[in-house]
Nucleic acid binder design. Sequence first.
DNA 1: AATAATTACTTCATATGCGAAATAAAACAT
DNA 2: ATGTTTTATTTCGCATATGAAGTAATTATT
Lengths: 143, 143
Amino acid sequence: MPHLTTRHAPRLIYLLTTAQRRLEAWIERETEGMTAARIGLLLALPAEGGVSMSALARALDLGAPALTGLVDRMSKAGLVRRIPDPEDGRSSLVELLNEGRVQRQQALERTRRLNDQLCEGFSDAEIAVVARWLDNVRVRYGA
Amino acid sequence: MPHLTTRHAPRLIYLLTTAQRRLEAWIERETEGMTAARIGLLLALPAEGGVSMSALARALDLGAPALTGLVDRMSKAGLVRRIPDPEDGRSSLVELLNEGRVQRQQALERTRRLNDQLCEGFSDAEIAVVARWLDNVRVRYGA
DNA sequence: AATAATTACTTCATATGCGAAATAAAACAT
DNA sequence: ATGTTTTATTTCGCATATGAAGTAATTATT
């Protein structure tokens, strides 16, 4: 069996991919009807007022088409709605509906808990290394 | 703006998700026609001989439907083919075609380089922490 | 040997994401 | 003011993944 690694390095690509996929699937199994992407959008929205699609795409690190689809699905689910941007005719703003506000609150708590869980078994210094590594990948391989 | 973290912990869920997505997209931009998933399958196959779908699914940490689709697409692309398993009528084996062998060799080299790149700027001890954290997520949130 | 349970895949419906191209409104330049 | 360029968003085609349900072949049970 050929080695995929050099310098005794672990298979980071595999580990990164599978960790992400499993965590996302776990979130969706746990939450019954909610998904990681939807939670991301709920948490990126303020309780009151709207945010433009482009600002959301930037905040969530998504391309414009991905956001269009996500907002479409969440609108159909009654969590958010689009309103026209009074300042700019090209832009639309996304805002929470009541059901979205309820879900947002739950998501906020669950997300805090999950994030803490992800630190368990690791020192603050170790978590800082993990965060630095992930951010490095993000920046280095960003579009 | 509400805080999403406790104990000064970075937003690990966001970092994990975006790092994975950007790395995957980068691989696909770099390779012209190849994708991260296809590379994974190519590297999971031996130069000669077949491997069962279930063994591949295990090796790649994919569900059976995902593998079915991946092998379908790669068969259509002329990289691999299915052959019936002589030992078990339910099972089929996947094996490389010539074009797949060529691609596999390139993928092997590129993957080694990328994996090394992912270590740059981090000590071996730090990479070990990252690997342990990722594997921990994998195991803890596995199905 | 006949039935039941398990295992290996596939099919289907759905969510998520990307890149390329289309559309429409705003900003800029001449 | 008018033509050009940029920006905001959507649409389209495709790849990838999940879970649920279906099919076929093997194994286990009685």
